Amino acid sequence: MKKLLMTVAILVGSLVVSLQPAAAAVSFPDVPASNRFHEEIQFLVNQEIISGYQDGSFQPKRNVTRGEAAIMIGRALDLDGTMRDTKFKDVTKKNRASGYIASAAAKGIIGGYPDGTFRPDQQIIRGDMAIILSRVFGLEFGSIREFNDVGMNMKASEAIYNIAGEYITTGYEDNSFRPNGKVTREQFSAFLSRGMSPEFKQRAVGNNGYALNMTKRYVYATPNGDVEEVFQQGLEGFDVPDYAGFSWKSTDLTTKEVAYFFQEETANELVTLFPFSDGFVDLLYPIEVGTGWYIDEEETLVDEITSVTETVETPFKTFTNAVEVTSDLGYTSYYVKGVGHVKTLDENGGVVSELKSME
Score class of each variant (00 low, 15 high):
28 F>K: 00
102 A>N: 06
24 A>K: 06
78 D>S: 12
98 S>G: 09
101 I>L: 05
18 S>H: 09
106 A>T: 02
79 L>Y: 14
82 T>Y: 03
113 Y>C: 04
99 G>P: 07
72 M>W: 14
98 S>I: 12
66 R>A: 09
78 D>R: 08
123 Q>H: 07
49 I>E: 08
70 A>V: 11
113 Y>V: 04
103 S>P: 00
33 A>F: 11
20 Q>T: 07
62 R>M: 15
17 V>I: 14
49 I>A: 03
104 A>K: 01
102 A>H: 08
69 A>E: 12
41 I>Q: 03
114 P>Y: 11
74 G>I: 10
106 A>N: 12
61 K>S: 12
81 G>H: 06
100 Y>M: 01
71 I>P: 02
117 T>V: 10
121 D>F: 15
35 N>L: 13
44 L>I: 09
48 E>H: 05
123 Q>W: 06
99 G>A: 05
82 T>D: 12
56 G>L: 12
46 N>H: 05
123 Q>T: 09
50 I>S: 01
89 K>T: 14
90 D>S: 03
122 Q>C: 01
100 Y>V: 01
37 F>P: 00
15 L>K: 02
93 K>M: 15
51 S>L: 02
66 R>N: 14
107 K>T: 00
62 R>I: 11
24 A>F: 04
96 R>L: 11
66 R>Y: 12
106 A>Q: 13
111 G>E: 13
120 P>L: 12
37 F>L: 08
69 A>L: 15
33 A>R: 02
36 R>M: 11
20 Q>I: 00
120 P>F: 14
100 Y>T: 00
98 S>Y: 14
22 A>E: 11
122 Q>W: 13
48 E>F: 01
69 A>D: 04
16 V>C: 02
64 V>I: 13
52 G>W: 13
105 A>T: 14
52 G>Y: 13
83 M>C: 10
20 Q>S: 15
106 A>R: 04
19 L>K: 05
63 N>E: 15
84 R>D: 07
113 Y>F: 15
76 A>T: 12
33 A>E: 15
53 Y>F: 15
88 F>M: 03
24 A>Y: 07
41 I>A: 05
71 I>N: 03
103 S>A: 15
107 K>I: 01
21 P>F: 12
28 F>G: 03
118 F>P: 02
25 A>L: 13
109 I>T: 01
45 V>P: 00
75 R>S: 04
114 P>D: 11
25 A>G: 04
97 A>L: 07
70 A>Q: 10
92 T>H: 06
73 I>Y: 05
59 Q>I: 07
72 M>H: 01
123 Q>L: 06
24 A>W: 02
40 E>I: 06
86 T>A: 05
101 I>D: 07
33 A>V: 14
